[in-house]
Design a protein around this nucleic acid. Structure first.
Lengths: 208, 208
DNA sequence: CTTACCTTGTGAATGATTTCACAAGCGCCC
DNA sequence: GGGCGCTTGTGAAATCATTCACAAGGTAAG
């Protein structure tokens, strides 16, 4: 397959959000233009994004909402559910573990881990917090595909390397550090400081 | 000023993170190559990013760490502190309100708001949760420059429009919806579902 | 002072992404 | 069936971002 740009995949996910909303509102079909307006992009962009994966619309009519949802879910790899582990049961980790939107979108939290004995044994949304030492065994047993790191920056690289060694190939990092990703491991970092700084820049340079 | 790409600003923020770390480790100077290696980019990229704003290095020697930190902070608009309000004191809002990293990077949480009477009056990291109705008055009084939305998706657009009307020009959105930004308002959305879906796509299409 | 060695800053080249523009397809109505 | 209005899918063009490559400038040592 031709390489697909990250920006394209992000937009596909966004389109999926809107299509789900459109479906709830009872719409049967939608045009690239309507989808574009919801997502702040252009109709040509929508069509180009989809064209990388095939042809999903009917000329003159638009896209069948339900079919397009199914196609996008297949494209994004959401036909099966993805087991996820959360590493770190602090404020952010606990908030994520209890976030129901996770499950709605096809991701199941199958484990939560922490090094702090005071947190081990806590129950978060039906999951018992496990000791950090249980990680390798649980990865082998539960076969999670994605790890979410909710730990301090200084611990993040070590835990990334550790889960990578156990076979995890996708990591979502909330630690405020850039990580160097082991070969073949997809890492995405969500960094609050960076997001705020981009906003500060925008406020400081209104014209840029 | 020439328009600066979003990707450039994000990298500048990343460079700043590394430079702070380098400074702690006692380094006086750093070359574009070293900075690039830390941030997973190339030396030419580092130099090009900086060149949009001026000339900060010494040929043959590299960059003076402390000076470059100061320059980046000035470029990003971090010379003054930014007052921030958090709207929504649920799991995520409360976690953010208590996150110390906020303050470290020059952002001060000056208000937390919630519509739920049960949450109003709670104390989060020294801030009392205020009723939603106090929002307009507090914005006029406290002059926050950034609002962080930690509320359900269906409420997000309305609250965005509301704070925009009160004069807020930068919003960080944690609600799982794309928002249409009023004119002149910078909005950044952090969407967990999208991040996870990008990872699911990467796992499903290892070659893409 | 001169040479050897580094590293920056930056036009030019390349590569990637977005936008344009239009032929082709479909539904509907007469 | 033919014409009209609408919308897709897609090469080609334009724009935007990254990488290359090298002249210019600096340090250090002899």
């Amino acid at each position: 397959m031709k390489h697909i740009a990250d920006s394209t995949v992000r937009r596909l996910s966004l389109y999926l959000r809107f299509l789900e909303e459109f479906e709830r509102q009872g719409h049967d079909t939608i045009s690239s233009g309507e989808l574009a307006r919801s997502g702040g992009t252009t109709s040509a962009q929508v069509r180009k994004d989809l064209s990388f994966f095939g042809s999903f619309g009917k000329r003159g009519l638009g896209y069948a909402v339900t079919d397009l949802i199914a196609s996008l879910r297949r494209i994004l790899g959401l036909e099966a559910r993805w087991p996820v582990i959360i590493i770190g049961a602090g404020k952010i980790g606990a908030a994520l573990a209890q976030y129901r939107g996770f499950g709605v979108h096809g991701f199941d939290v199958v484990g939560v881990y922490d090094t702090d004995p005071a947190r081990v044994g806590e129950r978060l949304a039906g999951i018992l917090v496990q000791p950090d030492a249980a990680l390798e065994g649980d990865i082998a047993r539960l076969q999670p595909r994605i790890a979410v790191l909710c730990i301090p920056g200084e611990a993040a690289q070590a835990q990334l390397d550790r889960v990578a060694k156990s076979g995890i190939r996708a990591v979502l990092n909330f630690a405020p550090t850039a990580l160097s990703a082991p070969d073949g491991v997809a890492v995405r970092t969500v960094n609050m400081a960076t997001e705020l700084e981009v906003l500060a820049f925008a406020l400081t340079n209104p014209e840029a």
